[in-house]
Design a protein around this nucleic acid. Sequence first.
DNA 1: ATGAGAATTGTGAAGGCTAACATTTGGCCG
DNA 2: CGGCCAAATGTTAGCCTTCACAATTCTCAT
Lengths: 330, 330
Amino acid sequence: MHDVAALAGVSHITVSRVLNDYPSIRPETRDRVLAAIAQLGYRRNPAARALVTSRTRAIGVLSPAVAQHGPASSVLAVESAARAHGYHPLVTAAAVEHDATVAALEFLLDQAVEALVVIAPHETVFGAIRDLDIRVPLVTLQAPDRPGGIGVDQAAGARLATEHLLELGHTRIQHLAGPERYLEATARRTGFADAMARAGLTAGATLSGDWSAASGFAAAARLEPQTTAVVAANDQMAIGLMAALADAGRAVPGEVAVVGFDDVPEAAYVRPALTTVHQDFELVGRRAVEVLLARLRDDEAEGAGEPGATADVIPPRLIVRASTAPARRA
Amino acid sequence: MHDVAALAGVSHITVSRVLNDYPSIRPETRDRVLAAIAQLGYRRNPAARALVTSRTRAIGVLSPAVAQHGPASSVLAVESAARAHGYHPLVTAAAVEHDATVAALEFLLDQAVEALVVIAPHETVFGAIRDLDIRVPLVTLQAPDRPGGIGVDQAAGARLATEHLLELGHTRIQHLAGPERYLEATARRTGFADAMARAGLTAGATLSGDWSAASGFAAAARLEPQTTAVVAANDQMAIGLMAALADAGRAVPGEVAVVGFDDVPEAAYVRPALTTVHQDFELVGRRAVEVLLARLRDDEAEGAGEPGATADVIPPRLIVRASTAPARRA
DNA sequence: ATGAGAATTGTGAAGGCTAACATTTGGCCG
DNA sequence: CGGCCAAATGTTAGCCTTCACAATTCTCAT
């Protein structure tokens, strides 16, 4: 910076002002400085900047350590939203274990992130958050019923899926749930149970998987004989389940109708095409960053009067495809 | 840090030494400092640290802006490898356009990353790299034939897939290629062409898609009537293609055999299960970080004597499933 | 012209940390 | 029991920015 100033024939503070779009700078001076910067290939040192402003402009992102569509989309959305606001994301993946989660959060906190986004949270994360006494704004994605939660209403999505099957005349329905500790999994299960209860029906036993197609495949063996429809907690498991049914010679949707959740890009291209619940991950990510930045601004303005945890609920959308059909009359 | 020092009854430099595992500190002193740190919940300011050491310990990751399995896995692998070495990743997604790529790289460089990883590079990236005069170590993933490239041998993978079809007796084979500007796409296309040429066969017209299942689906319409097998440049397109074939009542693999690429988790659970080429993304990511850190160490040791661009090639593996079968005799 | 006020630029300090050098403490040998 | 060396700890300065305040220059109305 010193060199730039010398080359442009100004003081270092003028360079700083040009860099920060300070209003009252003579255009000619600005040009001279800009030229010097370009000539020298100068880049401002973010560490020095962060030191003096005490703002890192970093947002920590805690994501599950899987390459699945949902989390990956969320990371992407958060990333681009953050960047659009001049922030940069520090992405860290962690397994579900308490220690790993704590370590990952510690890592992010050590980097002095100004805010945190937790994607696809599980119970452990909340424990870790409590243990750590986190002082930065934090949102959790896809758990809109929790304080600080933002995302698609998971329970509503599962309800939608279930009601779709009910409307088709199904009465013997089972739920293929995700791992218990994931908030998304429990919310979806609740939504399913709600819809069944509301219809005055008793659900079949809950099957459970680990989000993977393999676990959906395995779950098929535990399907009850009278079941005519399954609400799967995500598309991967639904796809695995359909594969197992196909292998067993049981027609989908003829004998068993299947609904997924997430609307992964492949959902429309498996056969039969998967009826599923679409989530707007892009919007969720953008909204999360907006909320975070707003809270950051509030903190800056004055410590008190925090608006608290404004839950932000985005409605899901049912996409009907070929994997669901009316129940055959008994 | 000052407060910690006061509480522990030592000077700030001793605190710094404890934090940095400096050898000669009396164990008792260390414990006292550690206790003070814990009591105060003190965290070292990374900006100040970076300022004085002039090391940010940040690695920039440029990834394509898609939530697909391949890139997502690579990001994840790079992330965990970097963290294991005390670095943190700055992930930035960019579209393929030149300007977007330059902007993304500029962004990373502005954050003073010490090294760069470019995932799934396309031609534009190399142009952008040239334009920017990048002075930090850089590796490109999945383009092992380029200088600084690390990854699975894409051409070899496509060759493997093609040879598998040839062994099954297929002679009328078409390639469903990825977007032209992606290095992975061209390498795979080359591998396919090689294998065909070696077998003395003429390939059918090259179909092209954009990596998506939808584009694979659309490509089915352009399949030549005599074609009995297709080598798709990725699994998504293969899945889309199979869906279209199923809709058209053409049996897979009976009438048309299909091979994919990537071995996405769903590949084993579509029906027919997809024969594909497996890549060890985890290993690629780890290797990339290792190479980068080694180069960083070398730079530190002395400017000269750089080992140059050590290309690092990882072999792919063919996974045979149900979507390929012997060609029917003519 | 001349002074007021605005516009533009400059000076000095500080932010939290580590490196280099300086000092103190403790152990051990003669 | 003094002195010397190594171990342990302290002092000072500086990394590169930005902020607060200060000084200069310019523009006009009088």
